[in-house]
């Protein structure tokens, strides 16, 4: 290992990243196989989704990922006040994403698209619901970063990097979920 090479955060978190990616991938495979079997029905149900809103959600989450990466850069430079601002920005962007997602669920359910209305919607609500659970856990993780930054005695760069890795993982999964639910034809 050269001087500049280092594992970002704790190794265990990377085991989680790989493991969770494979778990999500296995579900994506079921979705794609099922979709290919019932293409017409899936396309019809998919047309109820709002693509521009999905794009806004994706940009919000990508920007939150950028903000937490900037936070880590500030922590490494020992600029903790600036790092705190980036964590707050990340929380704000995450909340905005969650708000958009809730609005989308409410609209779809109001239009009669529920978990049981079609196979596509079953996959849609399951995948976006699982992702939302990961997102909510992410808010707790961002709280840990905020706490660590505010208290010099409990501050650990490795813990902050581990927590930021978790938040990026939420973004990683969304990038795939978005493409598979909104774009795939």
């Amino acid at each position: 290992m050269t001087e500049t090479e280092r594992v970002p955060g704790e190794g265990d978190m990377w085991f989680f990243v790989v493991f969770e990616s494979l778990v999500f991938t296995s579900y994506f495979c079921v979705y794609l196989y099922d979709r290919a079997q019932h293409e017409h029905a899936f396309l019809k149900a998919q047309s109820a989704l709002n693509l521009p809103l999905g794009i806004v959600e994706t940009i919000l989450l990508l920007t939150s990922s950028w903000a937490i990466a900037r936070c880590v850069q500030e922590v490494r430079a020992a600029r903790y006040r600036s790092a705190q601002r980036f964590v707050l920005a990340t929380v704000g962007l995450g909340v905005a994403f969650f708000g958009c997602k809730l609005a989308e669920w409410v609209r779809l359910i109001g239009d009669g698209h529920t978990f049981t209305s079609s196979e596509f919607m079953q996959h849609f609500f399951f995948l976006t619901g699982m992702h939302a659970i990961h997102l909510l856990i992410g808010f707790v993780v961002l709280g840990v970063i905020r706490y660590q930054l505010a208290d010099p005695q409990h501050r650990s760069h490795q813990t902050i990097e581990t927590c930021s890795t978790y938040w990026h993982t939420v973004d990683l999964f969304w990038v795939l979920i978005f493409a598979l639910l909104y774009i795939v034809r």
């Binding site: 280092r6 594992v7 970002p8 990508l62 937490i68 990466a69 890795t165 990026h168 973004d171 990683l172």
Partner: peptide, 16 residues
């Protein structure tokens, strides 16, 4: 995008 997030945001390009 997945690869860019891993490499740049998650800093894997500086990893072992």
């Amino acid at each position: 995008k997945f690869r860019i997030i891993l490499g740049e945001f998650m800093d894997v390009r500086h990893a072992p």
